[in-house]
Structure formats: structure tokens, C-alpha cells
Design a protein around this nucleic acid. Structure first.
Lengths: 92, 92
DNA sequence: TCCATACATTTACAAATATCGATATGTATG
DNA sequence: CATACATATCGATATTTGTAAATGTATGGA
């Protein structure tokens, strides 16, 4: 069996900046320009991180005119939690 | 606030081979030589991965003579799960 | 239509990580 | 003590990842 896909999803969370983004999104949905002000990174770097988070399913996006609104995905969180539990549970 | 430490722990799980190791350890405690037979990697590479997993707290080790026995850490799993939940929960 | 804004993509490079062979360390055994 | 074995560490290299400048694309307003 291959664990590549799960590893890819876990990697989406395995970065300082992306953890900061996740924490920021817990408050509410936010647009990219707002996140850009909070984090000390360039616009292209933020865009890169958001792509990884969205691809992992942990973050949802909604385009509104020029703005991209990002929010935590409830379903993504549940799927992620279940996936993690499959690896770390100690009782069979 | 710094997310470096959490990112480091999540990275410990963010690798194909280490996920395979975690799954293997779910069955029972295993020694390095046994894991080496299951995985298609060199001895030095396995040692490297085990160090990362042990450092993250997810895996416990027990030295018995020449052998190193590895097992999943119950406490490590709980701490890890709680840490992850802090980032992905969608209800405040 | 022209321009500014918001964001994505491309490109290039630096930093981090995975890998393995070689070597070192520690341990049992004859 | 010499040897075999199990594992860790070191050194070198290849791959992956993070970063930002430059560029591209879509949107909305003047």
C-alpha cells in the first residue's frame, strides 16, 4: 500500500507559516490580502501556501470578485483527523 | 507565537516511510532489524527515521542488549492528537 | 479602453530533507 | 580479547520544499 497521498496531506500542515494560517482562519473566513498583512511573507509565498492547504482539503476557498476568501473546512478537518488517527492510535 | 516546534512534530509524521513504520508498529512492538526487513530502505535510513519518530514523542524505544525495540507511545499519540486538533478544529 | 488591484503562476535559488555507503559504538559470545 | 552482530553517526549526494521577484490573469472602476 502507498502512503504517498496521506504523507502529502500531512505535509500540508507541516510548516510554520501554514500553521499560523490555520490558527488565523479559526477566527473567521479571511481574504488573502488580510492574511498577507498578518504574516510576514510575500504575496507569491502566501499563494503557494494557500494552494497546498486547499489541495489538502483542510481549507476551503470562495472567490468573490477580485478577492479570495479562505476558511477552514469542517469536512476536511474530520477527514484529516480520521486519517491521522489511523496512524497514531495505540489501541487496536 | 512560534509554531516551529509543532511543525517539527507534524513533519515527523509527514513521510511515506514513517507512515509505513507507524502502521507496522500498530500490531506490536518491533525491533529495528524486523522493521528493516519490512521496509525497502537501508539500515542507516531506518535509523534516521526512527530518531525523528522518537524525538516527536510518537514512538517509544526500549533497548534490550543489542536490540532496539520500538512501540507506539500512547501518551505521544494523545498529545499529538490534541496538538493537531488545536489547528484544524472548525468550531470555536 | 486604460489602469489599478487582487491573486496565481513561473522561474530561480537557497535551505531542508531523504538516502545510502562507510565508519563508529556498543553488546554478547566463544 | 577477538569476533560477530545490531544500531547509530558521519559524509556526500540527490530530491524536495520554501521563498520571492517577475510575470500572467481576471476583475472592477474611471
Amino acid at each position: 500500500m502507498g502512503y504517498r497521498e496521506d504523507a502529502r496531506k500531512i505535509k500540508a500542515l507541516a510548516d510554520e507559516n501554514r500553521l499560523a494560517i490555520m490558527m488565523s482562519l479559526q477566527q473567521k473566513e479571511k481574504c488573502a490580502c488580510y492574511l498577507l498583512e498578518e504574516l510576514n511573507i510575500s504575496q507569491s509565498t502566501l499563494s503557494h501556501h494557500m494552494k497546498l492547504l486547499c489541495d489538502s482539503g483542510l481549507v476551503d476557498y470562495r472567490k468573490e470578485g477580485k478577492w479570495m476568501h479562505y476558511s477552514l473546512s469542517k469536512e476536511g478537518a474530520i477527514a484529516f483527523r480520521d486519517m491521522i488517527d489511523g496512524y497514531i492510535r495505540t489501541d487496536k
